[in-house]
Simulated assay, not measured.
Amino acid sequence: MVLLAEYLSINSNVLNAFTKKAELTTEVEEKDITNYASLGWKEVIGGLKSAELGCEFLQDFAASQLDAIMWPLLGLVVPFEVRADQAAASASNPKWTGSILINGWNPITGSVGDEATVSMGFPTSGAVVRATS
Score class of each variant (00 low, 15 high):
residue 15 L to F: 11
residue 18 F to H: 15
residue 107 P to Q: 11
residue 68 A to D: 15
residue 81 E to S: 11
residue 26 T to N: 01
residue 27 E to H: 00
residue 109 T to M: 12
residue 86 Q to T: 05
residue 5 A to W: 04
residue 98 G to W: 06
residue 131 A to N: 09
residue 44 V to D: 00
residue 34 T to H: 07
residue 65 Q to L: 05
residue 56 E to G: 04
residue 81 E to V: 12
residue 80 F to W: 07
residue 67 D to N: 13
residue 36 Y to M: 14
residue 1 M to G: 09
residue 48 L to G: 05
residue 48 L to K: 14
residue 22 A to H: 11
residue 79 P to Y: 11
residue 61 F to V: 08
residue 48 L to V: 10
residue 31 K to S: 02
residue 93 N to C: 05
residue 44 V to P: 00
residue 127 A to P: 01
residue 70 M to K: 08
residue 43 E to N: 12
residue 24 L to E: 07
residue 88 A to V: 03
residue 126 G to E: 06
residue 34 T to A: 11
residue 12 S to A: 10
residue 31 K to L: 15
residue 30 E to C: 03
residue 17 A to Q: 15
residue 60 D to Q: 10
residue 42 K to N: 06
residue 8 L to K: 13
residue 119 S to C: 04
residue 103 N to K: 05
residue 128 V to A: 02
residue 30 E to W: 00
residue 118 V to E: 03
residue 114 D to P: 05
residue 105 W to T: 08
residue 79 P to W: 11
residue 78 V to T: 05
residue 76 L to W: 01
residue 75 G to W: 01
residue 23 E to N: 13
residue 26 T to M: 04
residue 107 P to E: 08
residue 103 N to H: 04
residue 41 W to S: 13
residue 105 W to V: 11
residue 69 I to Q: 12
residue 112 V to C: 11
residue 111 S to T: 14
residue 12 S to P: 01
residue 91 A to F: 10
residue 71 W to K: 13
residue 23 E to G: 14
residue 84 A to M: 12
residue 102 I to M: 14
residue 33 I to Y: 04
residue 102 I to F: 04
residue 94 P to T: 08
residue 60 D to P: 08
residue 7 Y to D: 06
residue 51 A to Q: 02
residue 119 S to M: 07
residue 122 F to D: 03
residue 55 C to R: 04
residue 94 P to G: 07
residue 43 E to A: 13
residue 65 Q to R: 15
residue 26 T to D: 00
residue 46 G to L: 00
residue 55 C to S: 04
residue 24 L to R: 09
residue 114 D to C: 04
residue 102 I to T: 05
residue 119 S to I: 10
residue 38 S to N: 11
residue 122 F to P: 02
residue 32 D to T: 03
residue 14 V to Q: 09
residue 57 F to N: 10
residue 93 N to L: 06
residue 120 M to A: 09
residue 19 T to P: 12
residue 118 V to W: 01
residue 27 E to V: 00
residue 96 W to L: 05
residue 132 T to K: 08
residue 95 K to R: 15
residue 25 T to A: 09
residue 71 W to N: 10
residue 29 E to W: 00
residue 115 E to N: 10
residue 25 T to C: 00
residue 73 L to Q: 03
residue 22 A to G: 07
residue 88 A to S: 12
residue 16 N to F: 09
residue 46 G to M: 00
residue 118 V to P: 01
residue 115 E to I: 06
residue 122 F to A: 02
residue 52 E to R: 08
residue 17 A to L: 13
residue 131 A to P: 04
